[in-house]
Write a protein that binds this DNA or RNA. Structure first.
Lengths: 135, 135
DNA sequence: CCGAGTATACGAAGAGATTCGTTAGGACAT
DNA sequence: ATGTCCTAACGAATCTCTTCGTATACTCGG
């Protein structure tokens, strides 16, 4: 069976997200590479399990693959940012009644350390938002 | 069967989260009330489906119930804030490589409108964070 | 050519999530 | 007492997620 029509991007499951994280970090990779990397975190995770997931994800359109070589090479078909947006939106809708800023408050209030550059970046965004609203 | 030992709070599933949202909004409610409210959003959602979920959630420790009346009254056993913390942490770990501020940036950058009070609150938090780090 | 090693493909088991149909019991008006 | 209406309880079907075992096929050194 070939991949489905995918009008919208499919939400990755937890296990799929673990694999996507690796692909985003490693770039195009064989099943073996992904498996080895994942094994660092999760010992006893089978090779064929990872293979199966990549096949499923290919079918869902979450990854692409180059199969001209014997060992197929997989790469993400969705960007990290796109996925972050998607999941963040779902969290906001599901648990924060649609309020972005409530999520921001929640995330910040739990922080103990934030790098200065990030603080600055956040402030810059706030300034832009405020500017946009005052005009 | 009575509820399990629950050392840690169980992660609510999507469907369970929908019901929790209603309970947080409505306060203690009968199955019927919850069902009616949910029906506004999701037509064709069976009454016994909601009932079943509430029973499952009772078993998981996500809700409590008062069954002295014929129509049992359910209320949340987990707070909205607690659940928001839990889910936010999972999102941060799963999709943002553990970086809180990256989530904040993501959430803010998608925003078009943020209420002034919230902006102020966010700034206040930023100030506190910055102060804590400079000392 | 053959066997060891490494790949993919496939199917299926087991757990969890979601959704109801059906059953049975209480309340109450007739 | 009986039928109607509401309620909870239960079991089960279906779907999705997660994980492998097994089969099969390619590659390369001897």
């Amino acid at each position: 069976m070939k991949r489905k029509s995918e009008l919208r991007t499919v939400r990755p499951t937890n296990a799929e997200l673990n694999i996507l994280r690796m692909l985003w970090r490693l770039g195009p990779s064989t099943v073996r590479s992904v498996h080895e990397e994942l094994s660092r975190v999760d010992r006893n995770l089978g090779y064929t399990t990872v293979l199966k997931f990549l096949q499923i994800m290919l079918d869902k359109g979450l990854v692409k693959r180059e199969d001209s070589q014997r060992a197929h090479v997989y790469r993400p078909a969705v960007s990290r940012e796109q996925t972050q947006r998607q999941l963040t939106r779902q969290l906001i809708d599901g648990a924060f009644d649609g309020s972005r800023s409530q999520l921001v408050l929640q995330a910040l209030s739990g922080a103990d350390v934030v790098r200065p550059e990030e603080l600055a970046e956040i402030r810059a965004l706030l300034d832009r938002l405020q500017g946009a609203q005052n005009n």
